[in-house]
Design a protein around this nucleic acid. Structure first.
Length: 242
DNA sequence: AGTCATGTTGACGA
DNA sequence: CTCGTCAACATGAC
């Protein structure tokens, strides 16, 4: 569920609830559920992995963490975290971290860091990278403040695409590799979106959870890298360590 | 059936 | 104050 493109897919399915009133609220989310009742949803937005339900005076922020899921016009077996009933349908969410931000989404988020936003700024991401030259690029990719929406799939596939080893220090990357990184991180997110919709995402993976490199056939190395200690999958033949 | 995983936060101690 | 470590959360695919 969790990476940015999956949240975009959720958002895209909810157009018919925009402008509609929440006529009932349920679930075990630790927020004041009654507060939503009777209010109109002005919009659904996303910022990276954050799914945002926009009301006039506040924003409900949903984070699906690792195991989150949702159902539209249906229910699942899992315990309901937050369920919204509209006159024309239902949105149910499970295993999510739910919070309320006072104010609008615009007041709470910097859209330029979302790799799937139309406001995504390569330039700003580049200057953020320059500030952390000693950070491993694998860790930098998971930094939501720099690349919001990027998760473990996107980071591993992007690094494979640009032939860079996850343990490379950002400050040592050649300019061409920095530029390739900034370009591909967004490009891959949109490929992910398309493949996920087609149901072909897994078979497109070139490194992530693969035994052999999708490019050269060399065995894929799996290792917990960096401070994040998430699993990195990479080709020691194709991907150079800087 | 057991293992593993598309993630983040907060507590705690050094 | 900042850093590292760890527990906690909770589900489903294989």
């Amino acid at each position: 569920m969790p990476e940015g493109p999956s949240i975009v897919i959720l958002r895209e399915q909810l157009d018919r609830f925009i402008g509609k009133e929440v006529i009932d609220v349920g679930g075990n989310a630790k927020i004041d559920l009654e507060r939503l009742k009777g209010l109109k949803v002005l919009d659904f937005k996303s910022w990276g992995k954050h799914f945002l339900i926009c009301f006039r005076d506040f924003t409900v922020r949903i984070h699906f963490m690792m195991f989150g899921s949702y159902a539209i016009d249906g229910a699942k077996k899992a315990r309901l975290r937050l369920g919204l009933t509209f006159p024309n349908g239902v949105l149910n969410m499970y295993t999510a971290d739910v919070r309320i931000w006072e104010g609008t989404a615009d007041e709470n988020y910097d859209w330029s860091s979302d790799v799937m936003s139309r406001h995504w700024s390569r330039k700003k991401a580049k200057s953020k990278l320059m500030e952390i030259p000693d950070t491993q690029v694998g860790d930098a990719l998971l930094d939501q403040n720099v690349f919001s929406g990027v998760g473990n799939i996107i980071r591993n596939e992007v690094l494979h695409r640009i032939k860079v080893h996850p343990e490379s220090k950002t400050g040592k990357l050649p300019k061409t590799k920095i530029d390739a990184l900034l370009k591909e991180v967004s490009a891959y997110a949109f490929d992910f979106l398309r493949w996920k919709k087609e149901g072909t995402l897994k078979r497109q993976w070139q490194a992530y959870h693969r035994k052999e490199c999708g490019r050269c056939g060399h065995p894929i190395h799996k290792k917990e890298t960096g401070k994040t200690r998430r699993a990195s999958f990479f080709c020691e033949r194709c991907q150079k360590k800087y």
